[in-house]
Design a protein around this nucleic acid. Structure first.
Length: 258
DNA sequence: ATGGCTTATTGTATAAGA
């Protein structure tokens, strides 16, 4: 089973890339972030024609998350329970016996900003909720745009970025606190080197110079860790005309022999 | 180099992303 995540930076603009990518990469599950559209604008029909079900939680201009799958989805949940949040950043569903949680973590803008405080409160709420979800759903995958580069290997220029948003110690601690719940960064199960990124700035020829960050992650629960057979970052769509600034991350699970 | 791109907006300059 292949499960992917992709921050598309407007699904309205990127739908052709998404459909083409699904044709080339027929994954069972694709989680999307930053759809930037209301549910009424979401391309359910185009995805249906391509053979995919979809669930979406969106809003105009900002945020918006979706799960696309060729399997039926059940027990759909929107947002983080008991956490008041007008921003559409979380959607969850069960596919087979796997619980999928698609997240678009707050960016935070700058470490001394109110948005950073919101990011930290948001991550606390996510952590508290997840600790309960993991008891309910041993087979759990939480994936999306975390807006955190877990360590210096995940940043093209750690010296220049020291203390900045995406790499600040409090953000990295919050990421480690998620792992401490019994989750694993699937990419790091297979690759220890730096220089592998999932986002590159549109400016300054960031992609061509590989000036990027690894901020999109697929975390798997203890029970699924042993089922992981690979995790790759697919840079292909970042080379297209008018790309998203993020590119897909794909995990492979071997769910036979269970 | 405190900018540089890209997206969206009851737009035509501004906000936000990361």
């Amino acid at each position: 089973m292949k499960i992917a995540t992709w921050n598309v930076n407007s699904l309205n603009v990127r739908l052709p890339h998404v459909l083409d990518w699904l044709t080339d990469n027929p994954v069972e599950v694709l989680c999307l972030q930053e759809t930037k559209q209301e549910d009424s604008k979401f391309p359910y029909e185009a995805l249906m024609t391509a053979g995919y079900h979809a669930i979406h939680s969106g809003q105009k201009t900002y945020n918006g998350v979706a799960i696309v799958s060729n399997h039926e989805m059940t027990d759909v949940l929107y947002g983080i329970p008991n956490f008041e949040d007008e921003q559409k950043r979380v959607i969850s569903a069960t596919i087979g016996d796997i619980r999928i949680i698609c997240v678009y973590v707050v960016n935070g803008q700058a470490v001394d900003s109110e948005k950073y405080d919101y990011k930290m409160r948001w991550l606390d709420a996510l952590n508290a909720w997840l600790s309960e979800e993991l008891k309910k759903y041993p087979n759990l995958v939480i994936l999306g745009d975390y807006n955190i580069a877990p360590d210096d290997r995940d940043c093209h220029d750690p010296a220049a970025w020291e203390g900045e948003i995406l790499v600040s110690p409090r953000e990295r601690d919050a990421f480690d606190d998620l792992l401490a719940l019994g989750l694993h960064d699937s990419f790091r199960l297979f690759e220890q080197d730096g220089g592998h990124y999932s986002w590159w700035d549109y400016r300054m020829m960031g992609f061509r110079r590989n000036r990027g960050m690894r901020i999109d992650h697929i975390l798997v629960s203890d029970a699924l860790k042993t089922k992981c057979t690979g995790c790759i970052i697919d840079k292909t769509p970042r080379k297209l005309e008018r790309p998203s600034d993020h590119t897909p991350v794909v995990v492979s699970l071997d769910l036979s022999n269970r």
